[in-house]
Amino acid sequence: MIDVVDCPLPATFQDAGRPGYRHLGVPLSGALDPEWLAIANALVGNPPHTVALEMRLLGPRLRVRESITIALAGEFSARIKDASGQSRPAANWRSHTLAAGDLLQIGGLRSGIGYLAVHGGFDLPLVLGSRSTYARAGLGGIEGRALRTGDKVKVGAPQGLPSVAGATGIPAHLPQAPAVPSAPLRVIPGPQRDCFTDDAWQQFLGAEFTVSREADRMGLRLDGPRLAHTRGADIVSDGVTPGAIQVPGDGRPIVLLADCQTVGGYPKIATVIGADLPRLGHALPGQVLRFAAVTMAEALEARREAASALAATIAAIGAPGPALDLDALYSANLIDGVIDAN
């Protein structure tokens, strides 16, 4: 059992989402960055799509009632405080075994989003095949809503391979943190490309767009040049998907993300390719985005490359050498200046 001591910003449980229900208006949902979800899970010995906690900007403080193994995927500045009040940093991209009573202070997040995985996953009900939170319809997660202060979350029984850390006490770690590329997002021309002038298409590919404050798991509204339609901005609604870029009447594009609706009534100028969707999920307000058109063949090749790169990243997870075992060093009190008397 984990007690949520405080949760200052919304955080949601996410897995691979709810494929198979979009014809009923149920969004796909699921992790914004499924690759980092898979890495976080691999670090604690879980199958790749096990439910984890997805956080943005700031993570909660959690107290564990029994010993568990956790891992953080993302650029956090987390600390672990034990029952005697001693505190040590919880490095990212590696597993940590917490003792009963330990406080995990996840803190600020420098990457757009990040994940907390626990060995065995979180014990949450399956709703339409997924534990992902979709708060607009109260599906998944804890009672269909974001995590909040005072929640109690059960840890599930391990289902996958025994965790390296769980089985042996040796932490698992990723030798190198994955990079979030800043190259332009690759797109395929959208189903309603012909609803836009050629000038608008060239502007779309040539200009810089800034993520506005209207940014959540449903989508990102972008500021930049207004994209002109050839004949109005309303179409009879048709299917949309995460990565689709809708342009309403005001000419400001909206990039759809995991929680997007299943159908939409605005023309779609382009669609971000599957291989680049995970990094879209990290975009924060103020960030600059650019787009580049690729062919369908290039998009498929990028998907294959992304899949093999992820497999290689997960295969590289191993036990660090003794000199890198920071937990052991810190807990043995060998390094000055890391003891937090509070």
Binding site: I188, P189, G190, P191, Q192, D238, G239, V240, T241, G243, A244, K268, T271, V272, I273, G274, M296, A299, L300, R303
Partner: peptide
Amino acid sequence: LLDLGDGALTLE
């Protein structure tokens, strides 16, 4: 057929 990215197709 319309391309909705590389993971979806729309039959219009």
